[in-house]
């Protein structure tokens, strides 16, 4: 079934990307129908995902606004994580996975063969379910991205990037005096903020979060949620979450997935107060999931 919000088809010409992904001017961006004043950052049309012979995602079309938080909710195995991983082509790392359909960021096709996933992933940061800092120092964790992407010329610039990223992730105060400590020595919540800092350090436009709080205690979760709310000012944040409360707290728009299909997508208040589909209603009222 098609999703209810048929999106305006993507925009910038033929969707071809040049060798190198340099951000193009956003002047031609169309504004998102849900939010009105926010431009569309990510537009997907007819995305199907297959793992080996099994289809995991069916024909998902959906537009995501910039500078806001979009939450994907739905029962386990409904394909929300799979869909998230389509946006930075993480599915490429799974041999048997096959993605068809169109995913565009700022109108540029992500699945195009000419797009280097490496460059793409620098623009689309990702935070995983379990905090996964590298077993290196806090400093190296954050500086690794800028280093491989050549974002800094010298030590001072690196230091500056690391500090900025850690500040933005709200971790600077806690770790400023022990940047040499291994990242794995931090607490779970701190680790997750470190991972967010690591993602911010390469200056992404979109940040994908795959259940970022599922491994954390309530206090750490609250801290992360606050952070997400702050980051919303500058980034397009897409998060998968299991917790409907969390989706309600931090997101502006919410998409509900079920059995590999997008069931309903709309402003968060509307989804939670006035769902149009009975399955959505059943899910938020706790009949299944």
């Amino acid at each position: 079934m098609r999703s209810q919000f048929i999106c305006v088809d993507a925009l910038n010409g033929d969707g071809k990307l040049v060798d190198d992904y340099t951000p193009t001017a956003k002047s031609g961006a169309t504004y998102h129908p849900l939010t009105g004043n926010l431009p569309i950052k990510v537009a997907t049309t007819g995305v199907d995902v297959f793992y080996a012979d099994k289809q995991a995602l069916f024909d998902v079309s959906l537009d995501i606004p910039d500078r806001s938080v979009t939450a994907f909710i739905g029962p386990s195995g409904c394909g929300k994580s799979t869909f998230l991983r389509c946006m930075n082509r993480m599915n490429d790392t799974i041999d048997t996975a096959k993605v068809t359909g169109s995913v565009r960021i700022d109108g540029e096709e992500v699945n195009d063969r000419s797009v280097d996933p490496v460059v793409l992933r620098a623009r689309v940061g990702m935070v995983f379910q379990k905090p996964n800092p590298f077993p290196k120092s806090i400093y190296d964790n954050v500086a690794y991205g800028p280093r491989i992407h050549g974002l800094a010329e010298n030590k001072e610039e690196h230091d500056a990037i690391v500090e900025t990223a850690l500040r933005k992730a709200g971790l600077w105060e806690e770790v400023a005096d022990r940047l040499d400590l291994p990242g794995t020595a931090l607490s779970g919540g701190q680790q997750q903020r470190l991972v967010i800092a690591r993602a911010i350090a390469v200056n992404p436009e979109v940040i994908l979060m795959d259940e970022p709080c599922s491994a954390l205690d309530p206090i750490a979760t609250a801290r992360i949620e606050e952070l997400i709310d702050e980051l919303r000012e500058n980034y397009c944040i897409i998060m998968v979450t299991h917790s409907m409360a969390q989706a309600a707290r931090v997101s502006q728009s919410t998409a509900f997935f079920h059995l590999g299909r997008l069931v309903e997508y709309g402003p968060t208040e509307e989804i939670f107060t006035n769902p149009k589909d009975t399955r959505t209603q059943d899910y938020i009222t706790g009949r299944f999931g």
């Binding site: 930075n88 993480m90 790392t93 490496v118 460059v119 793409l120 992933r121 620098a122 623009r123 940061g125 990702m126 935070v127 995983f128 379990k130 996964n132 800092p133 590298f134 077993p135 690794y144 991205g145 491989i148 992407h149 991972v195 690591r198 993602a199 350090a201 390469v202």
Partner: peptide
């Protein structure tokens, strides 16, 4: 663990 690989890939390291 896979998470290390995903972390690196996630910030745009090549394979």
């Amino acid at each position: 663990p896979l998470s290390i690989r995903e972390a690196a890939l996630g910030i745009g390291a090549s394979r």
